[in-house]
Write a protein that binds this DNA or RNA. Structure first.
Length: 217
DNA sequence: ACATTAAGTGATT
DNA sequence: AATCACTTAATGT
């Protein structure tokens, strides 16, 4: 047993010992590897081929859908204990990614080569559940995202975005410009400025240049 | 002090 | 809610 494997086993036991059976953890130790990413790095872009799927250990990853012209929209965030089951299907089909993934907070993840994950589906009940649960959860988040687009006004979407972001960062003090928010919500900076001012006056946030403090979680 | 970047505002669609 | 055009404020060099 080398040092790499020992580290991997330790991390798995820390985060996934309740989720996966022992044999599966051993398999993961054999084929997986840990990677670290800094905030702002692109994990995968639309059109790239997926060769591995991630198990997030630490940090958060932002999942974005992008239109050809460059318009972007944040769909959801992946956090500790999450995987992107969408990436799983992409993997077994050997298809290109339909999303872009950007590291939100510094992230550490175990990467698993695609060729094993299919076998494990048949072999391990815990793996099956993990993948199905993950799929279910992503679907729910996607529905939430659609609801936001279809039924909510910008005002509510903005507040939800800020609250989500504060939760993920574990800090109500966000360092973000109006322009960046506008990009994530696919709206204009002017609109964000005005709505943010409303929220500010309502006492829900406190905002200064390049900073927003979320007052209501 | 000056240039750059972020934010605020009124008018128009 | 988006866009334009313009102003004002904050920040970096």
């Amino acid at each position: 047993m080398n040092a790499q494997e020992a580290i991997l086993r330790e991390k798995l036991n820390e985060y996934y010992s309740l989720v996966f059976e022992k044999e599966l953890i051993e398999e993961i130790v054999n084929v997986g590897f840990v990677e670290k990413y800094k905030s702002g790095e692109t994990l995968i872009d639309i059109g790239q081929n997926m060769t591995h799927i991630p198990l997030i250990l630490k940090g958060a990853v932002k999942i974005i859908r992008r239109e050809k012209k460059g318009d972007e929209l944040v769909l959801y965030f992946l956090e500790k204990g999450d995987t992107c089951a969408i990436s799983f299907i992409n993997c077994i089909n050997r298809k290109e990614s339909i999303f872009k993934a950007i590291v939100e907070n510094d992230t550490e993840a175990i990467f698993l080569p695609v060729e094993h994950i299919d076998d494990w589906l048949a072999k391990y009940k815990s793996w099956r559940h993990f993948i199905i649960d993950s799929y279910h959860f992503r679907l729910l988040e996607m529905v939430e995202s659609i609801d936001g687009l279809a039924f909510q006004n910008m005002n509510q979407r903005l507040l939800k975005y800020l609250v989500d972001k504060a939760k993920i960062k574990q800090d109500v003090n966000l360092e973000i410009t109006h322009q960046e928010i506008a990009d994530d919500l696919n709206t204009s900076r002017v609109v964000v400025t005005r709505l943010l001012k409303e929220l500010h006056n309502e006492g829900k946030v406190y905002s200064t240049r390049s900073k927003v403090k979320v007052l209501e979680l």
